[in-house]
């Protein structure tokens, strides 16, 4: 399978056939090859986050098909979607979204807990991942004891926990200063180059987009360039 993501005429309509109807996505066609490092750019309200949620199996399209690693996910039920998220996809969010009551190590372990990986193995891998993102000395810190950049790197380590092929990042630098943002982008670059991960970054920041190898532009729910 050459493409990790394939979108075919994807529509997402909120509150269909009512006065509050919003057509967030209007017939998206897009293919992402395995090992690509791409950004989806657009202004706020352009539908870029909705697209990411649909690709990330957090949401299902109203119409059209999305294939993840060759599997049509637009027809899967809640539990099947959860399994795709668990094993195929790693998420990185703008606001880090770490569980505040857990340490950095435990946060990275969490996806492996859901995957039923034994404790020892889990711990070993989580430590490895935190070392890769440069936080080998911050294992037992809670999120509120970490800087924004550090939290985001924990989140990246967590996204890698079950070794997914696809990393989806929603404005990963949107809440960081430029230095931390640059560090985070460096980590993504390494993951793409060294570990061959497919990385999709949603952003409105041209500087971030420039770091990636391909830029897909989206406006009013339609792709207007880079597809």
């Amino acid at each position: 399978m050459k493409y990790i993501v394939e979108c075919k005429n994807v529509w997402k309509v909120y509150n269909p056939e009512s006065s509050a109807e919003v057509k967030a996505l209007r017939g998206i066609n897009m293919k992402i090859k395995k090992g690509e490092f791409i950004s989806i750019m657009g202004s706020s309200g352009s539908g870029k986050s909705t697209l990411l949620h649909c690709i990330g199996c957090l949401d299902t399209p109203t119409k059209g098909k999305i294939y993840i690693d060759g599997v049509d996910v637009s027809k899967l039920n809640d539990d099947e979607l959860a399994l795709v998220r668990r094993y195929k996809i790693g998420f990185v969010f703008q606001f880090f979204n770490l569980v505040p009551s857990l340490t950095a190590l435990e946060n990275v372990e969490l996806p492996m807990v859901f995957a039923g990986i034994p404790k020892n193995e889990r711990r070993k891998r989580a430590i490895q991942l935190l070392e890769i993102v440069g936080l080998g000395k911050r294992l037992y810190h809670h999120p509120n004891q970490l800087s924004g950049g550090e939290q985001q790197r924990v989140a990246i380590a967590r996204a890698l926990a079950n070794d997914p092929e696809l990393i989806l990042a929603d404005e990963p630098t949107g809440n960081l200063d430029s230095k931390s943002g640059a560090e985070v982008m460096k980590v993504f670059k390494t993951l793409n180059k060294k570990f061959g991960k497919t990385i999709v970054i949603v952003t409105h920041d041209p500087l971030v987009a420039k770091t990636t190898k391909r830029i897909v532009k989206i406006k009013d729910g339609k792709i207007i360039g880079g597809e």
């Binding site: 809640d78 539990d79 959860a82 094993y87 998420f91 979204n97 859901f114």
Partner: peptide
Amino acid sequence: IMKAIGATNKD
């Protein structure tokens, strides 16, 4: 968050 990182409804 838990759902995003792969928790099923049952989890």
